[in-house]
């Protein structure tokens, strides 16, 4: 595993239907820039990431990896309304913001960074896949510092829970971010595993056969059902479980929010986060706090 040290983490969550003016007010705590022509998804992105960076001095080449299940699809729906219901050409700001890359752009512009700027998605495992991209960039020596986050709006998040029987968390707007570099100095923790498995049994086999001691805390992603969670608990015998979905609610980017929240809440502990997608591909993230 390449070195991926966590220097800072932060989560912004809000109840569904949070007003964009409230988000703008919150952002003013971190930057004087007045954002206009932006929508809720973009504001959530900026707020979560600015909270994470806070007073850190960033290298100009810092990369941004924005992971999302639904990105700007809310804006896309509004623009489709303009075309199909109002029978008009769409207004330019709306149309431009149907492209989800605009959120990571406005963030890069605000932070004054011009490293890689990637918006990536993967059904139910967007944050995990984003971390894999970051991992390959660090391994190839392409990037030396990165902001990685997951952002999704409450109003769009319900759709991604389709097929998750019995999972009824409250929907939230979520924006969880981590500032990561390959340098240990000044870091509070590190990612120690980012692994994918083609099916449940191979994931379980890997966890059972690991020689290193078990993680202090276990957390399960949204698509791990109650029964499966129970059997994984039996195997892992964790000292504690962080049920961030029940405690704080769900958004398409719940994993990013859960992990960045863990960094804040569980100092000195290790976390094993297990998630899966609708096909039964599994993804495991382990992180250790110093």
């Amino acid at each position: 595993m390449n070195e991926m040290y966590i220097h800072s983490a932060s989560t912004f969550i809000a109840e569904a239907h949070t007003d964009t003016n409230y988000l703008k007010e919150e952002i003013r705590r971190y930057t004087k820039e007045n954002f206009r022509r932006v929508n809720k998804f973009i504001l959530l992105t900026i707020l979560g990431a600015r909270q994470c960076i806070n007073t850190h001095a960033l290298d100009a080449d810092t990369a941004i990896y924005l992971t999302t299940e639904h990105g700007n699809l809310g804006e896309t729906a509004d623009v489709l309304d303009e075309i199909y219901e109002v029978n008009s050409l769409p207004k330019p700001f709306g149309f431009i913001n149907t492209m989800s890359s605009t959120a990571a752009f406005y963030l890069a512009q605000n932070l004054g960074v011009r490293g890689r700027n990637i918006t990536v998605s993967s059904q139910h495992l967007s944050f995990e896949r984003g971390l894999e991209l970051l991992k390959v960039d660090f391994a190839g020596g392409v990037e030396r510092s990165a902001l990685i986050g997951g952002v999704d709006e409450a109003s769009l998040s319900e759709a991604s829970l389709e097929g998750c029987a019995g999972r009824s968390w409250r929907m939230i707007d979520g924006s969880g971010w981590l500032y990561v570099t390959p340098e240990r100095e000044g870091a509070g923790g590190a990612f120690t595993e980012i692994r994918s498995f083609r099916d449940g049994p191979s994931c379980v086999r890997w966890m059972s056969e690991r020689e290193i001691s078990a993680a202090d805390v276990v957390a399960f992603g949204a698509r791990i059902g109650d029964e499966e969670a129970a059997s994984l608990r039996d195997i892992l015998q964790p000292a504690a479980e962080f049920d961030y979905l029940r405690e704080y609610g769900y958004s398409g980017s719940a994993t990013a929010c859960g992990i960045s929240m863990f960094v804040k809440l569980y100092q000195g502990k290790t976390l094993l986060h297990i998630n899966r997608d609708q096909r039964g591909n599994y993804a495991v993230i382990e992180l250790q706090q110093f």
Binding site: H70, L73, A159
Partner: peptide, 21 residues
């Protein structure tokens, strides 16, 4: 209604790749 129907039918950006696999 356009927006309502769109939000119901879309399962996010990962949907097409999911269909390929």
């Amino acid at each position: 209604s356009v927006s309502g129907m769109f939000l119901q039918s879309s399962n996010g950006y990962g949907k097409i790749a999911g269909a390929i696999v």
